[in-house]
């Protein structure tokens, strides 16, 4: 079967910097893949190439076997690829409820039919009820990150690319996000590519991890396998993973 998400020989250059250097990876349907690597390794750039924020200089991205070449961000999203941003992005002047509703409406033809019901369900699940009518810009960092994730789950997608969903978040909200990921993964066999520095969470969620360093794929395997590789240890400035 075709991989759910595949990149083939991706290159991206920013001026003198080769941020993405021949990146090929393939994630199976229903897999939760970890993407790790030191700061500046090119993880966010890869996310941006996959989701259409940047066009690659060479190579291509395939979603369920279908090439995404030449497609705009919104088209890629409509094909069922949902992302989160490392620096949380929300509609700051809209309320929590309106943010969820907007996400629902943007993809409302994808099966679910009851917008208000889905939205309220997500508010209950995230325990954001008391803040439902608060503008998103007034939330705390953790609440914002949680809401950004919840927006992605109002209408289940085939494939999620999450850029540091756990950074700077308290443990309770972290667990809530992990539960949402596992739930969508189990119920809809959704595929995930999760960028994170949190090795404990990656170990819990992912059987396979891909390690990026200086724009390339440096290693792939289980977290324990890659953590033993000398080049990976060197890349993390000698600091062993966990």
């Amino acid at each position: 079967m075709e991989p759910a998400l595949e990149t083939i020989g991706l290159f991206k250059r920013f001026g003198g910097l080769l941020a993405t250097n021949d990146v090929s990876l393939s994630v199976e349907r229903g897999e939760i893949r970890g993407l790790i690597g030191p700061n500046g390794a090119g993880k966010t750039t890869l996310v941006n190439l996959v989701t259409g924020v940047h066009a690659p200089d060479a190579g291509e991205v395939k979603l369920g076997g279908q090439s995404l070449r030449g497609r705009g961000m919104h088209e890629i999203a409509r094909l069922g690829l949902v992302r989160s941003f490392q620096v949380t992005r929300l509609f700051g002047n809209m309320t929590v409820r309106e943010n969820l509703m907007t996400s629902f409406l943007a993809r409302r033809d994808k099966g679910e039919s009851d917008g208000a019901g889905q939205t309220e369900g997500m508010i209950a699940l995230t325990k954001l009820g008391p803040l439902a009518d608060t503008q998103a810009k007034k939330l705390s960092g953790g609440q914002r990150a949680l809401l950004q994730m919840a927006c992605g789950f109002v209408v289940p997608a085939n494939c999620y690319v999450l850029d540091e969903p756990f950074a700077g978040i308290n443990p309770v909200i972290k667990d809530a996000i992990i539960d949402m990921i596992l739930d969508v993964n189990r119920r809809h066999r959704a595929t995930f590519l999760v960028v994170s520095h949190e090795m404990a969470i990656i170990r819990r969620l992912c059987q396979q991890v891909t390690v990026m360093m200086e724009g390339r794929v440096a290693a792939q395997g289980t977290l324990d396998e890659v953590a033993r590789l000398p080049e990976v240890i060197a890349g993390y400035l000698g600091k062993a993973l966990e």
């Binding site: 989701t51 924020v53 705009g72 961000m73 919104h74 999203a77 409509r78 949902v82 992302r83 941003f85 992005r89 929300l90 509609f91 700051g92 002047n93 809209m94 309106e98 509703m101 907007t102 996400s103 409406l105 943007a106 993809r107 927006c151």
Partner: peptide, 18 residues
Amino acid sequence: YFMRAIKDDELRAKSLGI
């Protein structure tokens, strides 16, 4: 909803499929 979304953050609006 889409109009207000665009005014707040066009990139995010696109990323949702708008």
